[in-house]
C-alpha cells in the first residue's frame, strides 16, 4: 500500500524518476506530503525516506532546515507577512501586529479553528506592493489593515478558493512530459562531442 493518495503516488514516482539521483526528490516530495497531510507528518517523512533511500532522521534533518516545511500541523491557510527591509519601511511590522490582533494569535501560532497560521516571513520578492502578504504561497497584495481583515473574512467564508488553493507549493505544478531526453541519443551525442574535443587537442 502506498502512502500517497489521490494520484500523488504517481507524481511521487515521477519526481523520483526525473532526477539523476533519487535523493534530489527529497524536497519536492516533502512538498507533496504537505499537500496531502497539511504538514510534514512523521508517516510522510518515513515514506519520503523510503523513496529517497535515506533514513527518516535525514529527511527530518533536511526538512527542518527549510522554513516552508512544517513538522507540526499548521492551519488551512498559512498567512505570511513580510517585515524585511522594504516591507518594514512600508509598515510591515505594524501590519503583522495588526494581523496578530485580528487573528487572535501570536506569530507562529494557529487559530483555534485550525484555519490560520500566522508567520513572519523574510523577503518574499514582491517588494513593490509592500508590505507583502502571502496566503498559501500566493501573493494576495493586501497592504493595509483593512484589506487584510477583508481577506481574512473572505477566507473564513470559504472565498477565493480558486485563487488560493491549499498549501503544498506544487499543488498546481504538473509536469506532463515524462520522458527526459532520450538517454541513448544523449550518449551518442556525448561520444561524438568527446571525439570532437579530443580531435582538437
Amino acid at each position: 500500500m502506498s502512502y500517497f493518495t489521490d494520484g500523488r503516488q504517481a507524481r511521487a514516482e515521477q519526481l523520483i524518476a526525473i532526477y539523476p539521483e533519487q535523493r534530489s526528490a527529497l524536497i519536492p516530495l516533502c512538498h507533496l506530503v504537505q499537500e496531502q497531510d497539511g504538514y510534514l507528518s512523521e508517516e510522510g517523512m518515513v515514506a519520503v525516506a523510503e523513496l529517497c533511500g535515506v533514513t527518516p532522521a535525514e529527511v527530518r534533518g533536511t526538512a527542518t532546515f527549510y522554513d516552508m516545511l512544517h513538522t507540526e500541523p499548521v492551519g488551512k491557510y498559512l498567512v505570511g507577512v513580510c517585515t524585511n527591509i522594504a516591507c518594514l519601511l512600508a509598515g510591515g511590522l505594524e501590519l503583522l501586529e495588526h494581523a496578530e490582533g485580528s487573528l487572535g494569535v501570536r506569530v507562529g501560532a494557529t487559530t483555534e479553528d485550525g484555519l490560520f497560521t500566522l508567520e513572519e516571513t523574510e523577503c518574499l520578492a514582491d517588494c513593490n506592493i509592500a508590505p507583502c502578504v502571502q496566503v498559501n504561497h500566493r501573493y494576495v497584495r493586501t497592504t493595509t489593515p483593512e484589506q487584510f481583515d477583508a481577506l481574512v473574512s473572505e477566507l473564513r467564508d470559504g472565498g477565493r478558493a480558486s485563487e488560493i488553493p491549499s498549501h503544498g507549493t506544487l499543488i498546481r505544478t504538473r509536469r506532463d512530459v515524462d520522458l527526459a531526453a532520450d538517454p541513448g541519443l544523449v550518449a551518442q551525442e556525448r561520444a561524438a562531442r568527446r571525439a570532437a574535443v579530443e580531435g582538437q587537442s
Partner: peptide
C-alpha cells in the same frame, strides 16, 4: 525541448526544482 530539438540532433531536459524557504 526534449529529444532532438527542432531536428537539430540536440537533446535537453529541464527539471523545475522547488526550494523550500531558505535564503
Amino acid at each position: 525541448l526534449g529529444t532532438n530539438i527542432f531536428g537539430s540532433g540536440f537533446s535537453l531536459d529541464i527539471v523545475v526544482h522547488p526550494g523550500a524557504g531558505a535564503y
